[in-house]
């Protein structure tokens, strides 16, 4: 019950935040030199055609009225029509978002694996812990796009192990319900395609994951160090449990709290990073869409992507909070 109320509260916060975001975007649009009519009709259109378009697009109405129209559209899921593609922005996002989601989820998985490896190996003083840590530090100090390019040079150009661009070797091989190629291929019973998709995913995901992995890993590590010192771990050992059991049953769950909220934060950053890395790997996601929209001042498209990312950011942090509550019964949401 408390959890439901908490989620409802977060949804309300989301609405308020998106409203503020819409205002900011609207004002930006107002003060910018961008002329939507020119974007729509091209530079050679006649004065009459321009005027007619202005009237049709409601650009002659007073600003508050246009803002209300804009917000009214947002509420009904109408993100406007892209000047560039002439498609509803919502449809465009529906086309490009799954690729970005796949990339970010892949990166999240890689980041979590690396973070746990980093934290556990350094707490238990395994051999190789120093190597993991060194590589992560080196990687996280390198800008993401440079990391992507270096990865391409090594694994594509020199070693030829991994492909350079796109999501699949031959485009559009699978059409599935989730839009995530790896998953769709598996659902369609095409493991070879899934492997191909994974190969395409690996390098951009890795480039995106290194920075967050270090942040999450450090928080998890300090959580583990604190918990290993706790009295109840001594109790668990006094029961005669094996060290592995002590770790899995008693230490882990009590250590993940900080790492969970850090993961929520990093997930937001990863979406921002994905926009950059997509252009390095020609990944057909929101980054490519946004990259094409910005030069032509396609404001509905830019605003739509910004909205969706903002919503995802809040949602992922809410999920992290709910998970924290699930991990620790003392946390009252």
């Amino acid at each position: 019950m408390a959890r439901l109320r908490f989620i409802a509260g977060r949804l309300a916060a989301l609405a308020v935040l998106l409203l503020v975001l819409s205002l900011v975007l609207f004002v930006l649009q107002e003060v910018s030199d961008a002329d939507p009519v020119a974007s729509t009709l091209g530079a050679n259109a006649s004065q009459e055609a321009r005027e007619a378009a202005r009237e049709r697009m409601g650009l002659n109405d007073p600003a508050p009225e246009r803002y209300l129209d804009y917000v009214g559209g947002l509420v009904t899921g109408d993100l406007g029509t892209s000047f560039r593609t002439r498609h509803p922005v919502a449809d465009d996002i529906g086309t490009y978002l799954p690729a970005t989601l796949e990339l970010v989820l892949g990166a999240l998985l890689v980041a979590l694996v690396l973070a746990v490896a980093f934290a556990v190996s350094s707490v238990l003083r395994w051999r190789g812990a120093g190597l993991v840590r060194g590589l992560l530090f080196l990687g996280s100090t390198t800008p993401t796009f440079l990391l992507g390019i270096l990865g391409l040079m090594l694994f594509y150009r020199d070693l030829g192990w991994l492909p350079a661009s796109g999501r699949l070797s031959d485009r559009g091989a699978v059409d599935g319900p989730t839009g995530l190629v790896v998953l769709d291929a598996l659902l369609a019973g095409q493991p070879a395609v899934a492997v191909d998709a994974l190969q395409h995913l690996l390098l951009p995901a890795l480039a995106l994951a290194v920075g967050p992995a270090l942040s999450i890993g450090r928080v998890l590590r300090s959580g583990l160090v604190t918990t290993l010192d706790a009295d109840f771990v001594r109790t668990a050992r006094a029961k005669g449990l094996t060290e592995r059991r002590v770790l899995a049953r008693h230490v882990m769950r009590n250590s993940v709290n900080g790492a969970l909220s850090m993961t929520g934060l990093q997930l937001g950053f990863m979406f921002a990073g994905a926009l950059v890395i997509e252009s390095v790997f020609s990944w057909p996601g929101l980054g490519s869409y946004l990259g094409a929209s910005i030069p032509v001042s396609d404001f509905p498209a830019i605003a739509g992507v910004t909205f969706v990312l903002g919503a995802i950011y809040i949602a992922s942090n809410t999920v992290a909070d709910v998970l924290q509550g699930a991990a620790d019964p003392r946390i009252a949401l």
């Binding site: 009295d231 109840f232 001594r234 109790t235 006094a238 005669g240 449990l241 009590n254 620790d328 019964p329």
Partner: peptide, 18 residues
């Protein structure tokens, strides 16, 4: 496991909170 039992000072911190 078999021969020893232990009771520590502070039961709040000596039991796993989760």
């Amino acid at each position: 496991r078999l021969d020893l039992g232990v009771v520590f000072q502070d039961p709040m911190t000596s039991l796993n909170p989760t």
